[in-house]
Amino acid sequence: MQIVAEKLNFVYNKKTKFSVKALDEVSLTIEEGDFFGIIGHTGSGKSTFIQHLNALVPVQEGILKVGEYDLSSTAKKDKKALKKLRSKVGMVFQYPEYQLFEDTVFKDVAFGYSNFFPEATKEEKSKAVCEALRLVGLDPEEYAERSPFELSGGQKRRVAIAGVIVTRPEILVLDEPVAGLDPKGKRELMKLLHLLHEKECKTIIIVSHDMDEVAENCNKVAVFSEGKIVRMGTPKDVFSDAEEIKRLRLDMPLTGYLGQTLRENGFSFDFDLTEEDFIKKLQEIKRG
């Protein structure tokens, strides 16, 4: 499913003296298959934007199409279509482990499935849940009957993600998926997201403060600032102007600094900011 947004505007507390403009003429297209990164300073409108994608925040002004679903302000609201949309667009919030509530992992993961497919049989449900658990790297034999509250932080987060992908969303949106995890946990989670990208969810959108993560994983990046999209393109394009990135109160990815330092010291070095490409280009230089 393709996502097309045109001139989205959103204001919190409209018509009061506390009104805040959260989105200002946001236009962008996210193609099917993208691993899309959204970055920006706190309060730049990122979270508001992603919550538009499955109608948790209604469109106030502008056009928004997610696949065949029209969420534009002018479109008619249909509760059934909305439910279907939400099963197709999975949303993993910040610290998703805080939304767990059931007494077993199985029941918690099944919550979304039962909500979206109330007519499914027990076998279908059980199959979907076990598969979702396997996808996030948890053995259903071992974990399904345990209480989610006795798991470790990283495992809880995996359970929460399983609870979202259990409905097989085509688009998976994650808000700060690795926040609060240790470096190992971060790496494992990003690996998991790549796996999901290959196998299950065609499009993945992540909101992140970790520039390394974005440069390493995303094929396209949008930079939000004060409700506007100020830059959009490949990580290489977006991070090409170190001064501007600094002005937007963001950081450069480590690979970006590295490339810049090398160029400043007379090496002609051009790579797409991933570790893999960096090593490849380095090897090319070595070979001469």
Binding site: N54, R86, S87, G90, M91, F93, Q94, P96, Q99, N115
Partner: peptide, 16 residues
């Protein structure tokens, strides 16, 4: 604020 966030998260999982 936390309630608000949890409601959204469960709504995204089809909670009605």
């Amino acid at each position: 604020e936390e309630t608000d966030r949890i409601i959204r998260a469960q709504k995204a999982r089809g909670g009605d």
